[in-house]
Design a protein around this nucleic acid. Structure first.
Lengths: 160, 160
DNA sequence: GTGGATGCAAATCTTTTGCACTCGT
DNA sequence: ACGAGTGCAAAAGATTTGCATCCAC
């Protein structure tokens, strides 16, 4: 597994290859994303975390950075139905495996790391003439522990 | 397959069971949804179609109706990344089978009707103690015909 | 007449944009 | 000095909310 510095360096290459710079703002944003890989942060979340280390940063810059990173496929922009876009880092070992378990009750959002869909993607190619480059798979349901009631239900807006 | 009248009647029961009324506005909204089952309409889309038959209706009513129907699981609120929520009717025979093919090139959004995930859901139950009640599966990629260039690329905002 | 439902307008919230300014080369 | 990148404030959208009114029972 790569160190954060290495990750940043790799992404820096990707940026420069396309003529973009790794500015301090972008670097801090990347660090925040790397250090919260599991968390599906919203732009606002990222903004607040970045501001702790770089107080002058503007929200617009964060949005622009996230947009840029999404275009480069460094992060993936996702939507879980709560009205805000969330950003998922796509490090090498996550590539092409974005499965989520969303719990009704506690709102927990867990990431699953297997790649279960290769066979289905074959079928799509043959039966539908559709070449899959990416996929998204979310399961909505309930953890057994939650249905038994022993869990802290999550706050306000459900990530439906 | 049920007629539209029957479908509406069934939904009316569901509404009344929970103490809601099937008002004319709600009925027209339902009709529009039923007649455009394949289309993943946005609230704005629904509004415009409803207004053709019920010009006095307000946009807020449409939003409120769609929200209500989503809570009753009559429709499903989805987000394909273009900044607007889209609504998918969940009639009996679609139940639990929400698979989409999203084409990069032409933006086409196709629905697939097989249910491919039962086995995986079993596994989730056993390996993760997670009882699936619903799922969402989108494949992003390209139709062969589109990659050959013979297709009309879709307009502006990509449904990423 | 009571309560749910509606229409309208205003408010809210997320995201985007215009513009003047900064900074590295 | 050029151009990419930035911060700020304003704008743009989508969605929600407050409120007076309407309508069915």
């Amino acid at each position: 597994m790569m160190s954060i510095v290495d990750e940043i360096d790799k992404i820096k290459q990707q940026l420069m290859l396309k003529g973009f710079k790794l500015t301090p703002q972008r670097e801090v944003t990347l660090r925040v994303l790397l250090e919260n890989e599991q968390d599906h942060l919203s732009a606002e979340d990222v903004f607040m975390l970045v501001r702790e280390r770089f107080p002058e940063i503007g929200l617009a810059t964060v949005y622009r950075t996230l947009e840029l990173l999404a275009e480069l496929h460094v992060v993936e922009k996702m939507n879980f139905g709560d009205g805000v876009a969330r950003f998922d880092l796509r490090s090498e070992d996550h590539e092409h495996m974005h499965h989520h378990l969303v719990c009704h009750v506690c709102g927990a959002l867990k990431e699953i790391k297997d790649d279960w869909l290769l066979e289905l993607e074959e079928r799509l190619q043959h039966e539908y003439g559709f070449k899959v480059t990416d996929h998204r798979l979310d399961f909505i349901g309930t953890y057994d522990s939650c249905s038994r009631g022993d869990c802290k239900r999550k706050d306000s807006k459900a990530v439906s």
